[in-house]
């Protein structure tokens, strides 16, 4: 198996980052719902900060860290079966989070 080009590794890293961000988002929301009390949205008149945008930013940061891992992993002269599995895992985690802990 030949070594991947640098552009190919960067693209694999980007996909890894995206999948990691999705997984991180699902975990963050799950932790929020499980361990922190939230005010009743029907009684909350105004919130200064958006919890959704904050969560998205933290998840994207985690995705950025995951991208470095993806770049490192793609440097090995091996197959990248793990990428499809990682994307599927992130998606399943997000769907479960949306159903169980919206």
């Amino acid at each position: 198996m030949s070594a991947p080009r640098k552009t190919e590794r960067i693209l694999i890293a980007a996909a890894t980052g995206a999948a990691t961000a999705i997984f991180a988002y699902a975990v963050l929301r799950g932790v929020e719902r499980a361990f922190y009390m939230e005010p009743n949205p029907a009684l909350l008149i105004w919130s200064d900060r958006s919890a959704f945008l904050w969560r998205a930013q933290v998840a994207l940061y985690a995705g950025g860290l995951g991208a470095f891992g993806g770049y490192a992993l793609s440097g090995f002269k091996t197959r990248v079966i793990w990428l499809g599995a990682l994307i599927a895992t992130g998606t399943i985690a997000l769907v479960l989070e949306a159903v169980i802990a919206p």
Binding site: M1, S2, P4, R5, T7, E8, L11, I12, A14, A15, A18, A19, A21, I22, Y25, A26, R29, F52, A56, A59, G63, L83, I87, G90, T91, L94, V95, E97, A98, P102
Partner: peptide
């Protein structure tokens, strides 16, 4: 909102893996 966030990132993941597959030699 949660699902939309995932849809955006997955669209970019699909595009980047597609381009990576196009340029890969293996």
């Amino acid at each position: 909102e949660h699902l939309a966030f995932g849809a955006i990132l997955l669209a970019w993941a699909a595009l980047s893996t597609l381009v990576a597959a196009r340029i890969s030699r293996d």
